[in-house]
Amino acid sequence: MAHGPDLSLSIARLTFGGEVLYKDFHLNVAGGEIVALIGPSGVGKTTLLRILAGVETGFDGLALVDGHPAPLAPVPGLVFQDARLLPWLSCADNLRAVRPDVSDEVVAQALAATGLVDVQDKWPRQLSGGMQRRLGLARALLVNPRLMLLDEPFVSLDRVVVRELQALVTDLIVQSGATAVLVSHDPQDAARLAHRVVIIAGRPVQIAADLALDALPAQRSRTQIIAYEDRIETAMVESAL
């Protein structure tokens, strides 16, 4: 299976509202790796994701995806925390918005892969919160991404839905071999999904801890997940001191 691209991010300086948010910040992600970026709300995690997606360009530095500048790199599969569906398009057309060339069959496959059935002609507002996230995930999958960028994809969902979606996302990323960066403030997301956890904190933002989680995400036992969660929480508390 072909791995996703290597990522290399170097930020010499990035300011936001007159404040220096990032200074001399470096992050590398190996091809096929799933990295969770963990940190408190408002620390600037989403900004990193926006840089990797090529939508944030106002900074001194360089974001390389397989050696190419981020805006020119292959289209990433981007999953937003608010699902960000176009309310005036049907569910099927929301998918076609990012890949107009795909057949109805491919759209149906992408929906089925995320557990959505008979929703093609529905409007996004007619779906539950969990189903809207699934649709956002299906849209990201439709571009056959080698790079998946997930911004708090499980926030504000009830626990059962979160568990289902975590398992689904893990399977889909592992099967595709994509490189993935997951932004979250919840250690549980990282403990279940990531190969590696990068905890960021401070102002300017620095890497406070870089933890490798040995067991493969799809094969983790409940005990391992709880142990990883504890380890991440401890590192987060220490980084806040």
Partner: peptide
């Protein structure tokens, strides 16, 4: 937020107008 979606998925100007702005 919708403009950001268009940029992230590399929609052309025409697509952005038709799918995002016109509606």
């Amino acid at each position: 937020a919708f403009d950001e979606l268009a940029r992230a998925y590399r929609l052309s100007r025409g697509q952005t107008f038709r799918l995002i702005h016109a509606p």
